[in-house]
């Protein structure tokens, strides 16, 4: 019993290790590509971050998808950033699946609870 648990934990560790690594590599690559386009196109404009400029267009999926399709640099960077933020959230989903396959119901529930808290946090932003 104990032995089979150990074996599956090892599998999960490998999968999660790869997931985190791939998530970071892919999202940072997208940010770098978007960043290059951004600097080539807008590099000589004046920067202004001293005061808050209001909410940009690229926050919700529809705006980002149209932005990326229009090849807008800021939308491409933002897509990379969102993928980066999604990486640890995906890790929680993978943990939930992993614990479920190990028949560890307590930790399946704990993983889902963490996921719910993050989703709640996400939804609270829509309300405000």
């Amino acid at each position: 019993m104990a032995k089979s648990y150990n074996f599956k934990d090892k599998d999960m560790q490998l999968v999660i290790g790869w997931l985190l690594r791939l998530g970071v590599i892919i999202s940072v690559a997208i940010v770098i590509i978007g960043g290059m386009i951004y600097l080539i196109r807008h590099g000589h404009a004046t920067a202004g971050y001293t005061t808050f400029n209001g909410v940009p267009d690229f926050i919700y999926p529809p705006g980002i998808i149209t932005g990326v399709l229009d090849f807008k640099a800021r939308a491409i960077i933002q897509a990379g950033i969102i993928l980066l933020i999604a990486t640890p959230v995906l890790r929680v989903i993978f943990s939930a699946i992993g614990f479920f396959r190990e028949k560890d119901h307590l930790y399946t529930a704990i993983s889902l609870l963490v996921l719910l808290i993050i989703i709640g946090s996400m939804l609270s932003g829509y309300g405000g």
Binding site: V28, V31, G34, V55, I118
Partner: peptide, 30 residues
């Protein structure tokens, strides 16, 4: 990572994660 993601989703929706500013920060820190 998970902890930061839980608050990043709020900052993102409020417009505080600016792509032009976050880009050099993320690449540089990494």
């Amino acid at each position: 990572g998970v902890t930061a993601a839980a608050s990043a989703v709020i900052y993102l929706q409020r417009g505080y994660i600016d792509p032009g500013l976050s880009m050099p920060v993320v690449i540089g820190v990494l």
